[in-house]
Design a protein around this nucleic acid. Structure first.
Lengths: 169, 169
DNA sequence: TAGACGTAGA
DNA sequence: TCTACGTCTA
């Protein structure tokens, strides 16, 4: 209903290219890149009814790590976020389960990364391209265990230009 | 920052007419009709630094009453909403205080009303025009007292067409 | 820093 | 019905 124009899309979204920038989460929804308004992991079911993840947003709400070599360590959803109300271990359900299932189903996952906009820049969401989920493990003390996922950027996509180049607009 | 284009505006907003419709709260923000994303009462301070209300949204989250004679009974903000987490009496602060102050400062308040979209219609926010706040009182049992405000539509504005006419689009 | 009549999807 | 890496203003 409303402006929403897309159902769940696996893989690249027609008309959206690596490096495309967005100001608000609602824009990601409208173009079909990532549908949840707040959630970090968008999910659907594949032809065998297996829950899979189709896109993730790394906004800084969790301690994710992005390396220049195209490797991303993404933190699962739920559980205790620093200072926030949530309490307890993350569970292997919903988005967390979906992301894990991407390993064996070899489902490519769209990665959207939020740059915080240093030096008074406007924060932007940037489409980083397709990644494969290659590993999944748990970290943390009992009561605050989280899931971690290693994602590797699929080769052959347009290069990303981070760092100083993103400062020029 | 971002798309926000307006500071607080008292009275009518240039380019917005009675009956104009909007799909999302963010649109009310962008055009300057009502800035808060969730809050029902938008406030600012007048030239004497008195806190005043400049617009309210009646979305159905509280039991408001709109009569065909241009009279609206609006419920204050805070306290216990049916079933929600909030608990206790509403306080005469922030938006509630601002709305009360509109009585003595004779500040006109923009009213935006949300129609729920019966028969599969898309829910819409509609600009209802300017109202005067003419009365304020408290209602309810101790522990769940709320503020009520009587608003009267300022005469001479374009008529509103509710009911059957809003079914045709 | 926290609160608020938000939204979409599961 | 509930959750979710939202987003604004005070």
């Amino acid at each position: 209903s409303g402006f929403t124009q897309h159902g769940p899309i696996v893989g690249n979204v027609l008309g959206i290219e690596v490096g495309d920038e967005f100001l608000y989460r609602v824009e990601l929804n409208i173009v079909g890149l990532h549908r949840p308004y707040q959630g970090g992991i968008d999910t659907t079911r594949d032809r065998y009814n297996v829950l899979i993840a189709i896109s993730v947003v790394a906004s800084g709400g969790y301690p994710d790590q992005l390396s220049r070599s195209g490797e991303l360590v993404y933190t699962g959803s739920g559980g205790k976020i620093s200072g926030k109300k949530g309490v307890g271990d993350q569970k292997l359900e919903k988005g967390n389960l979906a992301l894990k299932n991407c390993i064996r189903t070899k489902t490519p996952v769209r990665v959207i990364h939020r740059f915080n906009g240093l030096n008074g820049e406007t924060p932007m969401f940037t489409y980083d391209g397709l990644y494969n989920v290659v590993d999944c493990w748990r970290e943390g003390q009992p009561g605050s265990k989280v899931f971690k996922y290693k994602l590797q950027r699929i080769p052959g996509q347009a290069e990303l230009h981070y760092g100083s180049e993103t400062s020029h607009r």
